[in-house]
C-alpha cells in the first residue's frame, strides 16, 4: 500500500523479529511443555528437546486415551458455539451497523449515537455478576446446558463488538456503489447483502475473528450456563487443572489442540483482511 513507512528493510525485519520472538516464545514454551515429564518442568529451565530433556509422550497418551472423550466433547462444543455465534453476531452486527451508518433514528430521546452507545454499553457490563441473573433467566426458560442457549449467550456477548467495529467500516463505503446497485434493480436488502457486505469484508473478517476468539476463550459464561453436555474447552481444561497436581504437560497438550481451530479460522479469513475497499467502486 501507500503509507509505506520507509524504514530500511533490515530495520523492519529486525523490529518484526523482536516482536515475533516475544509473541512466539511463550507458545514454543507451551509446545515443548506438552512433551515434558512433570519433573522436567520443575527442574528446568529446559528449552531444547533432546538436548535438555528427553521428550515424553505421557501427555499425548492421555489426550488420546482416557481423556479423549472429554476433550472431543469440549472441542466440538467450543467449535460449534464459537463459529456459529460469531457468524450470527457478524451478520446481525453488519445489518445494524449499516443502519446506524446510513439512516437517522429517533426513538424518543434516543438518536443514532445514543443507540450505538446503548448497544456497546452491553459489553461494558462485567459478566461476573450478570451471570447470576443470566443463570436464573436461562433456567426459567430451560436453556441451561443447551447448545442453543450457549450460542444465544455468545451472540449476545459479541453483538455489541461487531456493531461497533462495523459501523466505522460501513461509513466508509462510498454511497455511489449502492446507487449503482439500486439502478441495477437491487432491493435494499439485496443491496446490503450483495454489495455492501462484500465491500466491508476486511471489517467483517476482523469482527468474525474477534468474536470467535472471545467465545473460544470465554470461561465465566460457560462455567455458569453449562453443566455437562455443553461444556466448552476452557471448562474441560480447567477441570484438568493443576489445583491438585500440576499436570501442566497434559494441559499444554490440550492447549496445542485448542489453538488449531482459531488458527484455521485465521487462515481461512486472512485473505479477506487483505482486500482493500475500492473507492469509486472500480478496479
Amino acid at each position: 500500500m501507500q503509507s509505506k513507512f520507509n524504514l530500511p528493510k533490515i530495520t523492519r525485519w529486525v523490529l518484526l523479529a523482536v516482536w515475533g520472538l516475544f509473541a512466539i516464545f511463550p507458545v514454543y514454551w507451551m509446545i515443548i511443555t506438552a512433551f515434558k515429564k512433570q519433573r522436567d518442568i520443575f527442574q528446568g529451565p529446559f528449552l531444547f528437546p533432546f538436548l535438555d530433556f528427553t521428550p515424553a509422550t505421557q501427555s499425548w497418551e492421555r489426550v488420546f486415551g482416557q481423556d479423549r472423550d472429554d476433550i472431543l466433547k469440549g472441542l466440538g462444543n467450543s467449535l460449534l458455539f464459537s463459529s456459529v455465534s460469531a457468524l450470527i453476531a457478524v451478520v446481525l452486527g453488519a445489518f445494524a451497523a449499516y443502519g446506524l451508518a446510513r439512516y437517522t433514528y429517533k426513538y424518543g430521546p434516543y438518536r443514532n449515537n445514543d443507540l450505538s452507545f446503548l448497544i456497546v454499553s452491553q459489553r461494558i457490563m462485567p459478566p461476573i455478576v450478570a451471570v447470576i441473573a443470566l443463570f436464573t433467566m436461562f433456567r426459567t426458560v430451560g436453556l441451561i446446558d443447551s447448545p442453543f442457549g450457549m450460542i444465544l449467550a455468545y451472540t449476545w456477548f459479541n453483538l455489541p463488538l461487531t456493531v461497533f467495529i462495523l459501523t466505522d467500516f460501513m461509513k466508509r463505503i462510498p454511497l455511489d456503489i449502492e446507487h449503482a446497485a439500486a439502478i441495477d434493480g437491487y432491493k435494499k436488502f439485496a443491496q446490503i447483502w450483495k454489495v455492501v457486505l462484500p465491500l466491508a469484508m476486511p471489517g467483517l473478517a476482523a469482527a468474525y475473528l474477534l468474536s470467535f476468539f472471545f467465545s473460544w476463550n470465554d470461561f465465566i459464561l460457560a462455567l455458569m450456563l453449562t453443566f455437562q453436555k455443553s461444556s466448552t474447552l476452557p471448562i474441560v481444561i480447567t477441570n484438568m487443572s493443576a489445583q491438585m497436581e500440576p499436570r501442566w504437560w497434559l494441559i499444554s497438550a490440550v492447549g496445542i489442540l485448542a489453538i488449531i481451530p482459531p488458527m484455521l479460522a485465521v487462515i481461512v479469513l486472512d485473505r479477506f483482511m487483505e482486500r482493500q475497499v475500492l473507492h469509486g467502486g472500480t478496479r
Binding site: 512433570q38 519433573r39 518442568i41 520443575f42 527442574q43 487443572s241 493443576a242 489445583q243 491438585m244 497436581e245 500440576p246 501442566w248
Partner: peptide, 12 residues
Amino acid sequence: GGGTMRGNFVAG
C-alpha cells in the same frame, strides 16, 4: 498454590 507446591517439592 497447593498444586504447584506439590509439583515443585517432589522435583527434589
